[in-house]
Design a binder for these strands. Structure first.
Lengths: 402, 402
DNA sequence: ATGAATTAATCCGCATTGGGGAAAAATTGG
DNA sequence: CCAATTTTTCCCCAATGCGGATTAATTCAT
């Protein structure tokens, strides 16, 4: 366990204040004091330091409380958008999305490349990502030197702490040290993170978990991912690695194990068609599999209806198990599979309702969200920002040189 | 989030020192300083306070390093066994076990009552527990007033934070405020905790997880429980409640959901015998079901062999899923079902091996442990001790009155 | 306009904490 | 009995957060 010295104390309170300002928009010092339960004196000292460091800005308008109030008006504080820039990327099998954001996590520029990276070599993928990052940065009117940090969101099992990609459907190799690879290519600190963790943080900052510090997110893309938020922080496994939900076992056949990915993975839904799997081949290669499936389902394609129903059922059971283990107040379900439509969703909800133990039935609510790809990239950017927020900035340490 | 003031700093470091002393037996100040990465000055100050508070003792012998060493000899510090007394209890359907321990968690007296509390009314159960606690305390040569805290370990879904027993196989009612009930009966602060959490902490302090701060424990008793240790602390769900592993869904039949408890619960293994379930009725009532099953399995009872095999398989799959989600370096499996013997264990191991994804195959090791009932009660006592360790003791706060 | 009332933010001094270096304490070896 | 050595404590410093007094900036009443 790390030792508690004044520096840690400072870092904790500083983060608290910064996070309060981020969450509650332009906010006055008194209100920060109320929300964070720090004394006004301390808030004043910390905000002073944050102002010196250029992380926040003052604004003399926008005091929302009863306009006809006496006394000295409050000075509102807000994040300085220009305090930092980060790049977030979401890499999927058929598509790469990049987003440059400011210190608040607001997107400055965005770039979607519908490129199939699936099964390419590492260096080719790294080339494409490097290119995308550079172009997106230019689009934002910046140069790479302005960027403080980059986060690449990938499907699969990612070890955030070490920067290792343990296994990913878009990499042929396993145990790739991708964070180092990209850091040396771009000469900007680059980290990797599970795409599910990225979208989970995006929802925590901007989406459907803004009000919660505990929740679970299930992502249904080519890979089935899980993000657990615990006391406001991502719950990373003991080794700091992310989970692969698709590996969950849902039953056991006469000979073989039935995994979730075999019932609800993108390939499972679209790939096992009776005509030998060729029907979707072209659409899937282009990343349009789910859109095509949606069309066919609307036309009552029986095979697909059955596949979607089965997939929904499997996911419903898996979600029930996750709720049993984590007991979150909310489960957010995202990903391309949602576009299968009501057939899938109803089946999912129904299976969940049957599978959830009655004793914890009321604990969790299910929320569905069809986020745009941009949101995933933004989430990756948020992962990078989170590290910046916690990092020891200028004034932490000895007294500022006067 | 809680605000960081000097008091918190103190509490953290104080806990660190106390925990280091607990873990590493009689230990000198210098060694504490090395292990905790606190300066010798700070260690000296904190140990001084701990000595003043009577939580630790000095011992002038037992310096183990090279005996022929020059310089001032080290003064060894160790926990003061008499600094506190707690009572831990494990309540099962057919048996109640109590243990009084000292501040170190060493058992002073122990009491096993093979009483069937199953389906009794709350007040009867509370009566029995009250009686057991009182008798065990007397056996230890103490009176209730000497006891600082009590922890009752129960099967089921327990909300430790609020003291609520959400649902338990030994209670007819749900949502029982059992902590308050026992506190007012005994006039000693009493908390409740899941029995699985209790045995998990017991293993962390004394058993097979002494060296680990992250691990998962699976308990296979009448109820199937789970305890997750995360960074040295019990991972309690968002609401502070414990998990019920038996509710996990392992598959879906034509009409109904197949839960783990239906395949691997005690009742499932012993109860569904072809002769109508009567064969074990008497043995089960007496809590001897597993012992009898063991005998029958040794005699090649085919029905039981099949049940044990099926149960082992189900648990193996569930454990694989848990490893997929939590990625712990070790899984400890405990509980009465282990006494089913190699048939069960082999089946479990085999199913686990088949179900664990190859990408994380090497992450976790499976460890089996047939702990005595006493250990469970000791674990409950440890839960109580943990809270005492973290509580702000005397000197924390204003300067000590001189 | 001017002063009283009111609210926000800051300044000053205090208590507490941990850390570094010097000093004291308690040994062994010659 | 003194030097060497190692542990422990003592003294002082820097940093933190907090409470109370003070200053700043506004509205309201006259």
């Amino acid at each position: 366990m790390k030792t508690a010295d004044p520096e840690l104390m400072r870092a904790i309170n500083r983060f608290n204040v910064l996070d309060t300002i981020r969450r509650h928009g332009p906010i006055s010092r008194v209100e920060i004091s109320e929300r964070s339960e720090l004394s006004t004196t301390t808030v004043s000292a910390i905000t002073g330091a944050l102002l010196d460091d250029g992380l926040i800005l003052t604004r003399h308008e926008g005091d929302l409380r009863n306009a006809a109030s006496r006394g000295r008006p409050r000075v509102m504080l807000e994040l300085n958008p220009n305090a930092a820039r980060v790049v977030g990327a979401k890499i999927a099998a058929h598509c790469m999305v990049f987003a440059v954001t400011d210190f608040r996590g607001e997107v400055l520029s965005q770039l979607t490349l519908p490129i199939r990276v699936n099964r390419q070599s590492i260096s080719v993928i790294a080339d494409l990502i490097e290119d995308g990052v550079r172009r997106c940065v230019v689009d934002a009117g910046l140069v790479l030197g302005d960027v403080d940090s980059i986060c690449i969101g990938l499907p699969g099992v990612i070890e955030h702490r070490t920067g290792l990609v343990r296994s990913s459907p878009i990499f042929r190799e396993t145990d790739v040290d991708f964070a180092n690879e990209m850091t040396s290519r771009l000469n900007v600190p680059t980290i990797v993170e599970s795409d599910a963790h990225a979208i989970a943080l995006a929802h925590h900052w901007f989406g459907k978990a803004r009000d919660l510090d505990d929740m679970v997110l299930v992502s249904l893309e080519q890979t089935l991912g899980l993000g657990v938020l615990h006391h406001g922080q991502l719950f990373r496994g003991a080794g700091g690695l992310s989970h692969n939900l698709g590996d969950l076992v849902l039953g056991i056949g006469p000979q073989d194990i039935v995994r979730l990915s075999a019932l609800a993975g993108e390939n499972a839904i679209l790939g096992n068609q009776p005509d030998g799997g060729g029907r979707f081949a072209e659409a899937m290669r282009l990343g349009r599999g789910m859109a095509m499936a949606q069309t066919l389902i609307a036309a009552d394609d029986n095979t697909l209806l059955a596949a979607a129903t089965r997939a929904g059922e499997a996911v419903g059971l898996a979600v029930a198990n996750i709720v049993t283990l984590f007991g979150p107040p909310r489960v957010i379900i995202v990903g391309s599979s949602l576009s299968l439509g009501p057939v899938f969703l109803d089946s999912l909800r129904d299976a969940y309702r049957r599978a959830i133990p009655s004793s914890i039935q009321a604990v969790a609510e299910l929320v569905f969200d069809e986020s745009a790809d941009e949101t995933w990239a933004q989430g990756a950017a948020v992962v990078a920002l989170c590290e910046l927020y916690e990092s020891p900035w200028g004034t932490t340490g000895p007294a500022p040189a006067l």
